[in-house]
Design a protein around this nucleic acid. Structure first.
Lengths: 241, 241
DNA sequence: CGCATACTTGAGCCGAATCAATTGGCGTGG
DNA sequence: CCACGCCAATTGATTCGGCTCAAGTATGCG
């Protein structure tokens, strides 16, 4: 099978052969990690950027042995480290949530890409742009939504992010995330996450079991969460035209 | 006086004459806004990126006539719109907090810069990188700090951001921000922000009046807020070497 | 001097945290 | 194939931080 990354870029732009080759180079090396392993710890010096080729990972910060903030999940086709590209040491932990396969590559490869392809350079700005939009929406959740809305919004966010490139079978999708992790993403306690998810289930917004979620009434969920359907849309890379 | 932007870039890198000219072009046009004016409303189509040449502004999102999220303040020398570069419409409001002077310039100017100077291109990645670090720290505040810690952290953040390029006179600095705005940055009510600030004052962490804050015991404040002194440090742009 | 816009303070309430069990699922080994 | 043990999910009781509502006080400005 072709590279997930190349496929993803093809959603944004047309790729020349040279450009495809440049991208393929980012995924030459593949490394596997087991669920729960820290791929790259906070403070660890690293010259590498990563691509997720299979599985789920997350970026987090732990203080005080017990309080953790989870900034984002990184899925198949996402980059990790782009936003920290100018820091010598990684500021946060990068952890395998499921068993994963990731592709580390040196930052220098990016410089080469930037140099050789204006179009790819712009696409990377787009990608960072989208990452920032996700963070902004998370800030809204954390600051101004209650627990039920937070959980609802998160579910919609990942439903959308998954279905962007995968299959969306009747709103049902894989969601192998422990409630503790959701709690640390949303600034809640795991217990309250549980209560909120059960309330969503009880009121027929969603249904779920240990590893799958099904959205039963998407529109009502969107209303509840005040979900902005645009913020995850495919970024535009042709602002030069 | 020279351009603030050029001066700021000089903190990061050496600039050739050509590069300086490219940057100066971004600040050719200057526009003034009065305190409270919306410089560029959410949803408004815009081809422009902005530079702040004087004053304070903020980026925010308002829903429901009463719930607002303020993502960040943008000060002298900051960019606005970089992170939204690939969206046709601005996703959020950009508002003048004090009387300000801003410099709008078309996105196309950036493409030219990226094309002509690898070094400047990398510097822009660095700038975005730092912006992201600020957002991550805000996520920690919103998710896992209590009101007192949130306020303490915010004060330290802006103290640091101001002193990076300005003068830091005995920890006292201008802080013309209404408590409502702090509340909407931290996900609190204005009333609770008030109580928290007064508690910080009562316990001699800080002193303040309507427009200035003075940090009385920086180390104690840093401990309270669990402030990471590194996250705002000058990003590195030489990751290619 | 008077109005408007913050800032301040108090009382009561509520959403979410914490503490404390209990249940259920699943992998492992006997 | 079942029993054990672990870990996540669930449920209940209680507490508490921060919100809301409601007044009152500065501060600045025309």
């Amino acid at each position: 099978m072709g590279s997930c990354m190349v496929e993803k870029f093809r959603h944004y732009i047309e790729l020349s052969d040279d450009e495809e080759a440049l991208l393929l180079r980012l995924e030459e090396k593949k490394v596997k990690y087991k669920s729960g392993e820290t791929i790259r710890g906070k403070g660890h010096e690293s010259e590498d950027i990563y691509t997720i080729s299979d599985g789920w990972t997350y970026i987090a910060n732990t203080i005080d042995q017990g309080t953790r903030s989870v900034f984002d999940l990184k899925l198949n086709g996402d980059f990790v480290g782009l936003g920290e590209i100018s820091f010598d040491n990684y500021l946060y932990d990068f952890v395998a949530l499921t068993d994963v396969e990731v592709c580390p590559f040196p930052k220098q490869h990016l410089n080469e890409i930037f140099k050789k392809s204006e179009k790819l350079n712009r696409t990377f700005y787009s990608i960072i742009s989208r990452e920032q939009a996700i963070l902004f929406e998370r800030l809204i959740s954390l600051g101004r939504r209650n627990a039920l809305e937070k959980v609802a919004h998160l579910i919609l966010e990942f439903s959308t992010r998954k279905s962007a490139f995968g299959v969306d079978i009747e709103g049902s999708f894989e969601f192998p995330i422990k409630q503790d992790l959701i709690a640390d993403m949303l600034g809640l306690s795991n217990i309250h996450v549980n209560r909120s998810m059960n309330e969503l289930k009880r009121h027929k917004y969603i249904d779920y079991d240990r590893r799958n979620i099904q959205i039963l009434d998407k529109q009502r969920l969107i209303n509840l969460a005040n979900f902005n359907v645009n913020f995850l849309k495919r970024p535009d890379v042709s602002w030069h035209t």
